[in-house]
């Protein structure tokens, strides 16, 4: 059943204090699908993620996960059952060993060996570096580690905020290859990126936000440069 909806924001508006920054945003991620959420600086991409993971409560509209209304359920409760969010800036513990970073992230009581294998299967380089301090990894490897930490939670929903920030294109391509493989295993993925090209190659569908409004929703491969720049400019 590739069509079942796993993550859905329905007509969501959200605000910081009195300033509304998301207006009537609707996004749908199905099982095993990669959805790219694009848009310029300040468009509201991170805010959308915050609503989707339960960190922020929308002022109107609703959040549905596995076809159930979970608006208002706190982020920690959602995270515990398998809604995994990897925030901007990685969120790893630089002073801990690679393997401790991974083990700490796990949500269940599967054996340590199983948890490590879940992560190393996709990132063999981390297995080689498992006894190294996380802070001494390269930027790309650190991003791999944050993905590996996500996988250690055995997620059903995975949200990635600006994963490619500060990384070389080749490294980014490698990371996205893994993201594709993760989605193929059945995980629903929502990826936020500011620069479109890298992610559009792997995404099934795309949503473009600008000034908190959805300007485009549709298949990723139908989003040509012209449509994209029109959507960015918000016309």
């Amino acid at each position: 059943m590739i069509t079942e909806s796993i993550l859905e924001l329905r007509n969501v508006s959200a605000s910081y204090g009195a300033i509304e920054v998301l207006h009537d945003v609707t996004i749908n991620v199905r099982k095993g699908e990669v959805v790219a959420l694009l848009g310029p600086n300040g468009a509201g991409k991170t805010t959308t993620i915050k609503v989707a993971c339960g960190l922020m409560r929308p002022i109107s509209g609703s959040l549905h996960i596995a076809a159930q209304d979970v608006t208002g359920v706190p982020a920690n409760a959602l995270a515990r059952v398998g809604v995994c969010t990897i925030p901007e800036g990685r969120g790893i513990f630089p002073n801990l060993y690679v393997r401790d970073n991974i083990i700490m992230a796990a949500r269940d009581r599967a054996g340590i060996g199983i948890i490590e294998e879940r992560s190393y299967a996709r990132f063999p380089i981390l297995k080689e570096r498992r006894d190294q301090l996380a802070g001494t990894l390269s930027g790309g490897q650190q991003q791999m580690l944050s993905l590996a930490r996500g996988l250690a939670t055995d997620p059903v929903v995975l949200m990635l905020d600006e994963m490619s920030m500060g990384l070389a294109p080749l490294v980014v391509a490698e990371l996205y290859e893994q993201v594709t493989a993760i989605a193929e295993s059945g995980v629903s993925v929502l990826v936020v990126e500011q620069f479109a090209r890298t992610v559009l190659g792997v995404a099934d569908s795309a949503v473009v936000l600008s000034h908190g409004h959805v300007r485009y929703v549709g298949p990723a491969d139908a989003l040509d440069d012209e449509t994209l720049s029109r959507a960015y400019l918000g016309s």
Partner: peptide
């Protein structure tokens, strides 16, 4: 992802809604 993980997830999400906030 394992077989049955989505079903398990769906059940757990449903349980979250009925059990309410744990902090309370």
């Amino acid at each position: 992802m394992n077989e049955g993980r989505v079903e398990e997830f769906t059940r757990e999400i449903a349980a979250l809604k009925t059990s309410g906030a744990k902090g309370d």
